[in-house]
Computed example of a mutant assay.
Amino acid sequence: MIIGAILKTKGTEVVAVAPGDTVLAAARLLGEHRIGAALVRGPAGELLGILSERDIVRGMAAHGPGTTGLKVEQFMTRDLVTVTPRTLVTQALALMTHRRVRHLPVLDDSGGLSGLVSIGDLVKARIEEAELEAEELKAYVAAAG
């Protein structure tokens, strides 16, 4: 299975924040959408980074109680790990494990944003794929037997 198949089911809508937004505003947005990360986009929509719950927690540990009033750009991860719609789910899972990330922006061939996938999206897809393979194998054995 490829990432593009997940996006067809999940959709391509991506929640984003601006680098000048406060951490509090970003945290509220994450909570409102029940997600673990938001992309950080500039005024022209360009992809600047990602802000995750993990980034916020690290920021709180470093800056203390005043963290919520600070800007997203101070906490966001700028070095993005990305995939394409043609990336295999197994490759994306290996990349997430190796780079210790939980969200991958999906970029098309021209570098445009196609969507965002989470570790949960990929695990769900792998489970569905394994269940389908098991059912097909059962049907094959039953037909051959």
Results as ranks from 00 to 15, higher is better:
19 P>M: 12
19 P>E: 05
22 T>V: 07
25 A>D: 13
25 A>W: 02
27 A>V: 14
29 L>C: 08
29 L>G: 06
34 R>A: 15
35 I>D: 11
37 A>L: 15
39 L>R: 06
40 V>D: 04
42 G>I: 03
42 G>E: 09
44 A>T: 00
45 G>I: 12
46 E>R: 00
47 L>N: 07
47 L>C: 01
48 L>C: 10
49 G>K: 06
49 G>Q: 08
50 I>F: 08
51 L>I: 11
51 L>F: 04
52 S>H: 01
54 R>Q: 12
54 R>N: 06
54 R>W: 06
55 D>A: 05
56 I>N: 08
57 V>P: 07
57 V>K: 09
59 G>D: 11
62 A>S: 13
64 G>Y: 09
65 P>N: 12
68 T>Q: 09
69 G>Q: 14
70 L>T: 03
70 L>E: 09
73 E>L: 00
74 Q>T: 11
76 M>V: 13
76 M>W: 05
77 T>N: 02
78 R>W: 01
79 D>L: 03
79 D>S: 07
79 D>V: 08
79 D>F: 04
81 V>Q: 11
81 V>P: 01
85 P>L: 06
86 R>S: 14
87 T>M: 03
89 V>C: 06
90 T>M: 06
90 T>E: 14
91 Q>H: 15
95 L>R: 05
96 M>G: 07
97 T>F: 01
98 H>F: 10
98 H>Q: 15
99 R>G: 10
100 R>F: 01
100 R>M: 02
106 V>Q: 04
109 D>N: 11
111 G>N: 07
115 G>F: 00
